[in-house]
Design a protein around this nucleic acid. Structure first.
Lengths: 118, 118
DNA sequence: TAGAGATATATAGAGCGCCGATATAAAGAC
DNA sequence: GTCTTTATATCGGCGCTCTATATATCTCTA
């Protein structure tokens, strides 16, 4: 299984994608809220720069993994609220499993003779 | 600990660096052999392109993490053999621990309510 | 012995994605 | 009325990987 070859660049990109999709599992959110939640939930370890997040959201929407719609409550500040689609949920599960296995094999490879990988 | 902020690009680079340093833990090797061993040890999951490996080796040598010396056995094919330095070993342990923790926290964040992260 | 393929190192250029900077705009604080 | 926060968006620079190319030696085979 997972004979799929490892792609370093795709892996780094996957991290951000997974954080977005996983956050949306708790319900629809707009971009700014996603950034705040990811930072809070990770105790500041992971954080999104705006110049990173918004292009990712646009791409995920174009790929059909999230579904965006502008909310207009009282004509106030415009927010684009994103909801996880069925395809997005499937992508999340698939990628999460893949990342988990790659990481497991990586940690096993670089762990010393005495140290257990996990 | 590890209040250090997460850097996506540095993380991708760390993966290659860790693979190199971990392979050298078994003894000195030249670049081409490192590439072969990493690919073999990971059952083809991880592999180094030559255009990726050699610049990394040069940088690691400049940083003092590995020590390179040209071997001239019988005036044959030139090989630059790299050995892990004490600093390199320390760097390996430190980065490995860091990557392990980041990955652990990442998997925890993106794991569903039902699934245990590891 | 001549050619092909594997061994071995090196670098330059292309491509891709993150990051900082900048722009726009409205709501709330004081 | 101005400053900060909220909220989205895009562009240019930068860094790192990857493809392609260059050089050189060794080994195997016809």
């Amino acid at each position: 299984m997972t004979d799929e070859n490892f792609d370093v660049q795709g892996f780094a990109r996957d991290i951000h994608v997974l954080l977005v999709l996983a956050t949306l599992r708790n319900g629809p959110k707009h971009g700014y809220q996603i950034a705040l939640d990811v930072e809070t939930d990770s105790n500041g370890l992971f954080q999104f720069r705006h110049g990173t997040l918004y292009p990712i959201l646009h791409r995920l929407e174009a790929e059909g993994f999230i579904d965006g719609s502008w909310s207009k409550e009282g004509g106030g500040r415009r927010k684009k609220v994103y909801a996880l689609t069925a395809g997005g949920r499937a992508h999340l599960e698939g990628r999460r499993a893949h990342v988990g296995e790659v990481v497991s094999r990586l940690l096993h490879l670089i762990s010393g003779p005495g140290e257990a990988p996990a």
